[in-house]
């Protein structure tokens, strides 16, 4: 009967998710060193992905698809921070220096 309602409701989520995803990706491209890039991708990996998936869930209604989307969302929210944590630790261990001053470009260690 009101078929249009979930569609309209999901639009803001999809739009916001796309926006955050693009912002995070641009951050991944533009930021000066590894740590700030990780910071930028956390936006896209958690917020953008979550909003996109929630938007799709609203569109899908109450079905098996929603359950699978929820599983994907939980997996993303679970593995993303773990991977980023391991990445930051490994980068720190390999002595990749963060860029502290504005004039400096790139990281000082070479791998």
């Amino acid at each position: 009967m009101n078929d249009w309602f979930p569609e309209i409701l999901s639009w803001p989520f999809l739009a916001a998710g796309s926006f955050f995803y693009l912002v995070g990706s641009i951050g991944l491209m533009r930021m000066p060193d590894v740590y700030t890039r990780m910071h930028a991708t956390s936006v896209s990996d958690t917020f953008g992905a979550a909003l996109l998936l929630i938007g799709m869930m609203i569109t899908a209604g109450f079905s098996l698809v929603t359950a699978k989307l929820l599983i994907i969302l939980l997996i993303l929210l679970y593995t993303g921070p773990v991977a980023t944590h391991a990445l930051a630790r490994a980068a720190r261990y390999a002595k990749v220096e963060p860029v502290l001053h504005k004039g400096e470009e790139g990281s000082s260690s070479k791998l």
């Binding site: 990706s25 590894v34 890039r37 990996d45 990445l87 990749v96 990281s107 260690s109 791998l111």
Partner: peptide, 11 residues
């Protein structure tokens, strides 16, 4: 660095 590549792969 390689970590940039790993981060990009994850993304």
């Amino acid at each position: 660095t390689v970590f940039d590549r790993v981060l990009a792969a994850n993304t």
